[in-house]
């Protein structure tokens, strides 16, 4: 079986608007499922906010506190305003990553598609640019200028800094996409090993146990990676926001 088959986009409901193909695909379906899961998590968790939280509320608060303290550490007191945005990005990436690991149900991982991750990265990048120019105007360009440098060296560093700034959404997107894709390919490869080795006629199933055990361990690792990559995405987003808010 082709391990890349799992990334195939299937059009569930072909649609087009203004010459653009906007079909409802399996990717969109799993984004919608992620959205529904987040909606349940959020609305149940905050249905009746109590001073002494119940389990759901404590769970939502835990995630919110995690994002808020991350922003507080990296951006400072100003960062709290952007908590909903970073929270939304973090939750979306996290839930898409985690849902993609569900076995049996034919789960699709939207974050294993560079289109989705670059879309998310450009949301962050756009917000960073807008915040930067709104707060500092053209002074925002001083972000790229090294302090106390002579003109020649300064120009040189300026070019590098601008390039690195412009490459941020791409590195952000490719990091997440590559991690997700690699993990799912690995899982699929070992899954095919289970089938291939387990079908030996002499001793049925025995040889398939080893790759199955590896797959169990890999699933645990992929769970970790799913959480860590969502964290990394949100962390980098808050670091970029810090540049826009504080200009170093």
């Amino acid at each position: 079986m082709n391990p890349m088959h799992q990334f195939e986009i299937v059009k569930l409901h072909p649609l087009a608007a203004g010459g653009y193909d906007i079909s409802f695909t399996n990717s969109a379906l799993w984004m919608a499922i992620a959205l529904g899961a987040i909606a349940i998590f959020m609305f149940v968790g905050t249905a009746k906010p109590q001073l002494v939280p119940g389990r759901w509320q404590a769970a939502v608060e835990y995630v919110y506190d995690f994002v808020a303290s991350m922003l507080d550490e990296n951006v400072g007191p100003e960062g709290k305003r952007y908590a909903p945005l970073i929270f939304a990005v973090f939750m979306f990436v996290l839930v898409c990553n985690l849902l993609g690991l569900l076995p049996w149900v034919g789960a699709f991982t939207p974050t294993s598609h560079v289109t989705v991750t670059i879309g998310l990265a450009f949301i962050v990048f756009t917000v960073v640019c807008v915040v930067g120019f709104m707060r500092h105007g053209l002074h925002f360009f001083s972000l790229f200028w090294p302090k106390d440098a002579n003109i020649v060296l300064g120009l040189f560093v300026f070019v590098i800094e601008v390039l690195s700034f412009l490459s941020r959404p791409f590195t952000l997107a490719i990091r997440l996409f590559a991690n997700m894709t690699a993990g799912h390919v690995l899982l699929k490869v070992f899954g095919t090993f289970v089938v291939a080795l387990g079908s030996f006629n002499a001793l049925p199933y025995v040889f398939g146990v080893l790759p199955l055990a590896v797959n169990v361990a890999l699933t645990a690792l992929e769970l970790l990676i799913a959480v860590v990559q969502a964290y990394v995405f949100a962390l980098l987003a808050s670091l970029y926001l810090n540049d826009a808010v504080n200009l170093h």
Binding site: I9, F43, T46, A88, G119
Partner: peptide, 25 residues
């Protein structure tokens, strides 16, 4: 297709879910 639905769902997520629930919390 992915970008359109991502944009739509993210708008729903941000304005329809997170902005409605987080401030209460």
């Amino acid at each position: 297709p992915q970008l359109f639905w991502l944009a739509l769902f993210f708008i729903v997520l941000y304005f329809g879910i997170v902005r409605l629930t987080l401030p209460r919390l």
